[in-house]
Design a protein around this nucleic acid. Structure first.
Lengths: 79, 79
DNA sequence: AAATATTTGTACGTATGTATG
DNA sequence: GCATACATACGTACAAATATT
C-alpha cells in the first residue's frame, strides 16, 4: 500500500487511508503509538505538513488522539 | 466590521481595511503581534492565500513587518 | 538535578494547480 | 489574458511538552 504520486486523490488523503487501514486491520492496535511524524516522513517520503494533514483527518474521525510531546495513539474502539 | 462576501471590493482588500483600522485605532499597537495567518483564517473564514494577500498590502504600506517563523508586527508610527 | 533528544505545535515562505469572473 | 480565491505540497525555523540519559 503506497502513495500514488500521480493520483488525483490528494497525497494526505492517501496517507490517511494507509494509516486507517493499518488501524482497522489491527496492525496498529488500540493504545499503540503511531510512528512519529519524522518516521512517517521517512516511510512515505513526503513533507511533514502532508503527514500532519493526514493525521489530522484521523483525529477528526476519532480514530486517534495526539498528545503533544508524546505522540499519536490509536483510540479504543468506540461502541 | 466584517467582510462582505458579495461586495465588488476584493476580500483581501476588505480584510486589509479591517486590520488597518485596528492598527490606526490602536487596538493593535506598535510592537504588537497581529494574529497569525491561521488565526486570521479562523476569524474571517477565508483561505490562507487571501489572508496573506491582505497582509502583503499592509507591508507595502509599511504598517507592519513580517518576520518568518515569528509573526507579523505593527511598526512604530513613522514621523 | 541537569542536559540532551524526541515529538508535536506554531509560523512564515514558496510553488503549483484548479476554478471563476 | 488577468485578477481573485481556494487547495495542496514542500521548505525552514523555532517553541513547547515530554522522555531519556
Amino acid at each position: 500500500m503506497t502513495v500514488d504520486q500521480w493520483s488525483t486523490e490528494p497525497i494526505y488523503r492517501q496517507i490517511a487511508a494507509i494509516l486507517r487501514a493499518k488501524i482497522e486491520s489491527g496492525e496498529y492496535a488500540p493504545g499503540d503509538k503511531l510512528p512519529s511524524e519524522p518516521r512517517l516522513q521517512q516511510e512515505h517520503g513526503f513533507a511533514r505538513d502532508t503527514i500532519r494533514h493526514a493525521i489530522k483527518l484521523l483525529r477528526e474521525e476519532n480514530l486517534v488522539v495526539t498528545l503533544p510531546g508524546r505522540g499519536t495513539f490509536v483510540r479504543p474502539r468506540s461502541q
